[in-house]
Design a protein around this nucleic acid. Structure first.
Length: 678
DNA sequence: TGTGTGTGTG
């Protein structure tokens, strides 16, 4: 008899509990939840662990941390469930250190055993701390308690190591998981991407597919940035197909990832197509397409989209600004740059470090070095990139002294340079002929262990070559482990500069034998070398094979070099003939080369032809007038020389005296070369 | 019978 009665009351009680659990779950407001709590107390369920655990969690989800904690504390004997819930609440409310106090309490003051839930939560908390030590401890405890192969614990351990940039340890933890689930794989893939291990992350993604684990849209979104970074279209297109097949092609994160991928690979049309498939593009989607157009030099579209974006009521964030800015510099759109700068102030992101860096870069490129410096001085949080952008801004605008001073300032502030900083400073040294500083930077490169960086070693080669130490440049080049096309170019033009055309040509043959494909710059360096060594027929041959053997269209600079090559040899008529047969309109560089040759060869008539073209094409440039006037003077045609000077005076043009830089006893000094029109 | 890890686009 009683046997029947007890179950009935248990059933009744359990039904009531279900009722309360349901009420808690459905509570949508704090008020509602508090009313439910009152009912729970009235019905004598305030000591029911199950109900209270659920209530505690809901309170914490509503951000009512204190109430949740009081409820927990009111229990003299909480079980592991309640402990886990309160640890989770603390961790979700950023009270990470309190979770560890609770863990301590759990181990010292109770006989409860932490389970896989407890460890997963605690390790996750550890990854938000400043240093990894506590995480190491918890990880050890979890191994001792036998949770090493648990996917929840294992995933959070892997994530913990990835957050502390310990990729190898993360891999070890992942490999210990018996049956990694989608979360485990996603954690590893995205963590590898955050640690810039792009190809590894793609390999893991392939491993996941082979393992047969069902991937999620988040998996595709996680691996796409790796494919974009490596410009790996094969993986990208494969992910695209998978997304279409599985129906994830509607998912905004996946689509946005594809937009970036195609933009990065230069396929802006597909990028635009994918963008149009996004139902409701969010801020990040807009940023992806705007920066996509921007990176691919599509200024008009980029600006139009940016306007559409602002017009749809979106608030630009720092990434929008950083994404749209680069498109302005190649086209000299100072006005647009200024208006985006204004918008960045309006949206309150102008002091963001990446925004100031992008603005400094774009103003520098537009030769607005004063505005760039103002932004630099006003930037409250200067990253290394901010310093670098200002230094290279100075270097590229020829303000080498300012670049070096800023670098010295960095040294005083004990800001450690990176390869980018040193590359810029080396370029400044090369421009200045500052060999002593250059050598000191070389020592710094060795100290910081940047020798293996291709950009740095190339900048060193260029610096030594331009400062006259061709042997030093050559020995560095010989010792480079991985030479890229830029290093070869630097060494070729180094030899050219030193009048060693034959060496430059031999190096080119060697380069082709190594399997490196030449670029336009390689040919420019070669033509330049031929020019400086008087190798006319070799120069002609190089110019020919450039197009026939290597499918590189010559640019204005190549044509100008060819005119120079013939001009220097005194074959002025041939040079003119060459210009006439050019398949593209000759630019100022080409006519300038002819004018220069006329100067050395005293050819007054041809000089007039070249000058007339130059006045049309490049009216603001005083250099041409100087050359022409000098030609007339040398020829003793003083009246004509005077006429040219008169034109210059009327145009209010004044020649900035040219100078040569040499280093004497560690100091660079200027030696005036021309003193014309002063 | 109440608790969970983690990830995503620029």
């Amino acid at each position: 008899m009683s046997c029947r009665k007890i179950p009935r009351s248990v059933t009744q009680s359990s039904k009531k509990r279900d009722f309360f659990l349901n009420l808690i779950s459905k509570s949508t407001t704090t008020e509602h939840l508090n009313q439910t709590h009152t009912q729970i107390i009235r019905n004598g369920f305030s000591n029911d662990l199950v109900t209270i655990t659920k209530l505690t969690q809901k309170l914490s989800d509503f951000g009512l941390m204190n109430q949740a904690y009081n409820l927990f504390s009111s229990f003299s004997k909480p079980d592991i469930f309640l402990f886990n819930v309160i640890i989770r609440s603390l961790s979700h409310n950023n009270h990470h250190s309190s979770s560890f106090s609770l863990y301590y309490q759990l181990r010292k003051k109770t006989s409860l055993k932490p389970d896989n839930f407890t460890y997963a939560l605690l390790i996750s908390s550890s990854s938000y701390l400043e240093s990894p030590e506590i995480g190491y401890w918890i990880h050890c405890h979890s191994i001792i308690d036998g949770f090493q192969s648990d996917p929840f614990v294992g995933s959070s351990v892997a994530d913990f190591y990835l957050k502390f940039n310990q990729v190898q340890n993360a891999r070890k933890a992942f490999d210990k998981i018996t049956n990694p689930d989608a979360v485990s794989w996603n954690t590893l893939i995205s963590g590898l991407v955050r640690n810039c291990c792009f190809s590894e992350s793609i390999k893991v993604f392939e491993g996941m597919l082979l393992s047969g684990t069902r991937f999620e849209s988040t998996t595709l979104a996680a691996v796409l940035p790796a494919a974009a970074e490596l410009q790996d279209m094969r993986t990208g297109k494969y992910v695209h197909c998978l997304a279409v097949k599985t129906g994830f092609f509607t998912h905004v994160y996946v689509l946005t990832g594809l937009v970036s991928l195609y933009s990065r690979c230069g396929d802006i049309l597909t990028s635009k197509f994918v963008f149009e498939q996004i139902n409701e593009p969010d801020l990040v989607s807009w940023n992806a397409i705007i920066s996509g157009y921007s990176c691919n030099g599509e200024a008009g579209f980029s600006v139009k989209l940016f306007k559409d974006f602002i017009g749809s009521g979106f608030k630009a964030d720092s990434s929008t600004i950083v994404g749209v800015l680069p498109v302005f510099s190649p086209f000299g759109h100072l006005c647009l740059c200024k208006s985006v700068h204004g918008l960045s102030i309006k949206f309150g992101v102008n002091l963001n470090s990446s925004v100031s860096t992008a603005l400094i870069t774009v103003y520098s490129r537009l030769n607005e070095i004063g505005s760039a410096r103002k932004l630099f001085d006003e930037a409250p949080n200067k990253s290394l990139a901010t310093w670098n952008s200002m230094i290279s801004g100075y270097t590229q605008n020829g303000f080498t002294d300012s670049a070096i001073n800023l670098f010295k300032h960095m040294q005083i502030l004990e800001i450690r340079p990176n390869p980018v900083t040193l590359t810029s400073i080396l370029s400044a040294c090369a421009q200045l002929g500052a060999i002593t500083l250059g050598k000191w930077i070389h020592e710094l490169v060795i100290k910081e262990e940047f020798q293996s960086n291709a950009y740095v070693s190339t900048a060193l080669i260029d610096m030594y070559a331009k400062c006259g130490s061709i042997d030093e440049a050559n020995s560095l080049f010989e010792n480079m482990k991985e030479k890229n096309v830029v290093s070869w170019n630097a060494m070729i033009s180094g030899h050219g500069l030193h009048g060693k055309g034959d060496k430059a040509l031999n190096l080119f043959t060697e380069m082709l034998n190594t399997g490196i494909s030449p670029t336009g710059v390689t040919f420019l360096s070669l033509l330049y070398s031929c020019c400086h060594s008087g190798l006319i027929s070799e120069g002609d041959r190089i110019f020919r094979i450039m197009k026939t053997d290597h499918s590189i269209e010559p640019g204005q600079e190549h044509y100008a070099c060819m005119v120079d090559l013939h001009g220097r040899a005194g074959k002025l008529e041939q040079a003119l003939e060459f210009i006439k047969q050019m398949p593209v309109e000759p630019g100022p560089g080409v006519w300038g080369a002819l004018l220069g040759a006329c100067m050395t060869r005293n050819n007054k008539n041809l000089a007039k032809v070249a000058s007339d073209e130059l006045f049309e094409l490049d009216p603001g440039n005083i250099g041409h007038l100087v050359l022409l006037s000098n030609i007339y003077s040398t020829d003793q045609s003083y009246q004509e020389a005077a006429k040219v000077r008169e034109i210059a005076r009327r145009k209010n043009l004044k020649k900035i005296p040219g100078c040569t830089l040499i280093e004497v006893g560690g100091t660079t000094i200027k030696i005036s070369r021309h003193q014309v029109f002063e």
